[in-house]
Amino acid sequence: MTDGDAILRVRDLTVHFDTGTRDAEGKPRVVHAVDGVSFDIRRGSTLGIIGESGCGKSTTALAAMRLVAGARGRIDLGGVDLGGLEGEALRRQRHRFQIIFQDPYSSLNPRQRVGSLIRTPMALQDQGTPETRDRRVDELLDLVGLRPETRHLFPHQFSGGQRQRIGIARALATNPDLIVCDEPVSALDVAIQAQILNLMKDLQAELGLTYLFISHDMGVIGYMCHEVAVMYLGVFVETGDTRAILAAPAHPYTRALLSAIPRVDPVNRSLMAATRLSGDPPSPVNPAPGCRFAARCPHAVDRCRTERPALRPVTLGGMERSVACHFAGEI
């Protein structure tokens, strides 16, 4: 996934957390939350990251936002290497990339009124004057489908979906180049989820937004994302065009993930016939060498347990994507 038109280029993003404990052999126990992840996002498009809980999606998002201490790697946003900036210089760049969180209850300061919540990013980045900011607040509330009069209310006076709209308005306030969305609809009921997804798509079409969109729900990814990266234990195992991957998944993990999705289909009960993965994902603490998926992979051989497969281009079903599996395209 490299592209001349990319607004965001991330190279070898790595985040390790030292647990401060040691294993039986006296080696420090290190969580390999994100282990050398690279991706590009085209301006105006959406890249999805999908994977099971604990695979490193949020850490990737927060690291791309420069909100994790100790992250390594290049993060190039429109020509500026955010990875190399610190302190005030980084702070000055923050209007260009914003984030929407999963939990609509903990992501808004309960003591701030909605107007002030949405005004804060503009004030912190010295954008406009107090009057133009107030006007922009009303504009943004209208844009996300809330009445401008609601700017006097506090977050707890809104439903979950409405709060997520407020979070979106806040993220849009500084006209960012990139919006990172960390499971923005995972806490919402399906009916509200559909409203928010449509809103985000409409805003993208209207304002030309670029999203890094994280979800554990393949249906949501399929609807929202032009491209997708499938993540497993801190690494990308398959990346490429979303439709290509949904139509013909190449990595054994992607296949298992797709077949485990309960489709709304009372007749063809594919879930019960699915190729079933055994066990839970192993721990990201000091992962074994070789393929991260080897412990649960039905195709694993000795080579998989010693040699780590790199992402490489594979054509399957007539469509190209990158896959990190020694036997991609053959199995």
Binding site: A191, Q195, D202, G219
Partner: peptide, 27 residues
């Protein structure tokens, strides 16, 4: 409405970029 608003991969695969999920308005 509840069934229609689910972004089901089989269905969204056939959707065009400008298509939107059916929704149930309100809360």
């Amino acid at each position: 409405g509840l069934i229609a608003c689910i972004p089901d991969i089989d269905r969204t695969e056939r959707m065009a970029e400008s298509d939107r999920l059916p929704t149930i308005p309100g809360i």
